[in-house]
Simulated scan of single mutants.
Amino acid sequence: MTLVHWTPWQEIDTIERRLNRLFDQDISPSLRGFSVPAAEFSQDEEAVYLNLEAPGIDINDLDIQVTEKAVSISGERKSETSSETQGKIRSEFNYGKFQRVVPLPARVDNTQVKAEYKDGIVHLTLPKAEAEKNKVVKVEIASTTA
Rank of each mutant, 00 (worst) to 15 (best):
S91E: 14
K135E: 12
I57L: 05
K97F: 08
T14D: 09
G75C: 06
V101S: 04
Y117M: 15
I27K: 08
E53W: 02
R32E: 06
M1Y: 11
M1G: 09
S83R: 05
A39Y: 11
R32F: 02
D44I: 10
D58M: 04
P127N: 09
Q43W: 14
E84Q: 04
A115Q: 15
V36K: 13
D119V: 00
P105K: 09
H5W: 10
R100D: 01
F34N: 01
M1F: 10
F93C: 00
G96M: 02
S42M: 02
G75L: 09
E92Y: 13
V113C: 05
R32Q: 09
Q112M: 05
T125S: 15
V4K: 14
F98M: 04
Q10F: 10
N134A: 07
D61H: 06
S35H: 03
Q10E: 14
A146Y: 02
I57Y: 06
L62V: 06
R32I: 02
A38W: 11
K78V: 02
F98I: 00
N110H: 13
H123S: 11
P103Y: 04
Q65S: 10
A131Q: 14
K114L: 01
E46D: 08
V66S: 05
D61A: 06
Y95Q: 01
V48W: 08
E68F: 01
K128N: 04
T145V: 11
A115M: 14
R17Q: 10
P37N: 06
A142S: 13
